[in-house]
Design a protein around this nucleic acid. Sequence first.
DNA 1: CGTCCACAGGAATGACGGGCGG
DNA 2: CCGCCCGTCATTCCTGTGGACG
Length: 409
Amino acid sequence: MERVEDIFERAIKSPIFKRREVLLPDYVPDYLPHRDAEIVRLARILAPALRGERPNNVFIFGLTGTGKTAVTRYVLRRLESKALEVGSRVHSVYVNVRHRETPYRVLADIAEAIGLKVPFTGLSTGEVYGRIVKWLRRKTGVYVVVLDEIDFLVKKHGDDLLYKLTRINELLGSSRVSIIGITNSVRFVESLDPRVRSSLGEEEIVFPPYNAEQLKDILSERAAEAFNPGVLEDEVIPLCAALAAREHGDARRALDLLRVAGEIAERQGDSLVRAKHVHAARMEIERDRVAEVVRTLPLHAKLVLAAVIAATGGGRLQATTGEVYDYYRRLISIVGVEEVTFRRVSGIIGELDMLGLITARVTSRGRYGKTRVIELAADTGALIEALEEDPAIEDAIDTIAGETLGLQG
DNA sequence: CGTCCACAGGAATGACGGGCGG
DNA sequence: CCGCCCGTCATTCCTGTGGACG
């Protein structure tokens, strides 16, 4: 006889997902396929912490979605639980520098993670550093500080903070600090002060990209946890793997595709996740990414972006900085706000490039000068849609959208 | 083979709003 | 409440440069 409870349970449960959260980016699984070597390396490096010794500082390199963060968190989790078991004092501090890309905020995050309360603005960075030192002097144990996406900090603010952090042990009593720096840009190391480089790079681990086969293994592993049995059509995982492999073997990308494909299938009331849902997921992810980035852009950055769309004829052509600036000025006259200087527009173009909305690479045209060749790097429709959300520039966007479509049509 | 274009991009500086310690 | 410091956006002034043209 069927129990009423079971009927209700089934009604609440998703027909597609068993545990959707397994596919979310910050989920750290119990098993990480094809990363055994890296896990062992890191574990060996960090193991001395259990004896109260300071582990060597580590540099971890690898492109996005190669498992750097997952492996690090995984090993630290194991380390901390082992420490708890045997009674050693080991703590880990994880800071993602990407969205806290100033020395002050990074220090504030570290402070907070070790239980020290600091105001999130108002103090000098030196003062916060001093407070952290003072606080740690009264503590015992090993602190492993992870600085993820460390290149974002260094690029804008130099390596002063890293230098200070690597030397913090000289000021401490019975506590120890070791640092794990994670970066996806190998070239960035060259820009470091040699002293920082050698002290931070006591150990180095390189994470190679996954190939399509390995991505399939990763996806299968997670899919078994995440989905109800039999809801994935056979081609779904290979497709996600292939698409992500094309983007330098980005596992995060692959997992996103799989998750969003499942969400779309569920939303559409389909009992199976199919290849068409994966393709729809690709579009949706791109659209969301663009919308989110564009939404937070300052006014003039939006206008410059609109100018790029106009100057490239909706993404079909290339443009130069000068051409973009001309279009920008036209847009300014429509919107009726004060214009920024050429220098600033040039700077904004660089910022848009960093955000991945456009690509801008410098070329020399000899007699005809040196400039940047600018192209759109995101879907034109998604960009225009996102820009139109801002009421202040709606008219201007409509104008260029009309012209662009007119040219295309 | 030197010029000189059309910018790149660094540095110094400042205005401004937010937010804290005292 | 004041004074200070912060991050952000912007300006001004600047030096640097790859390579087609003459």
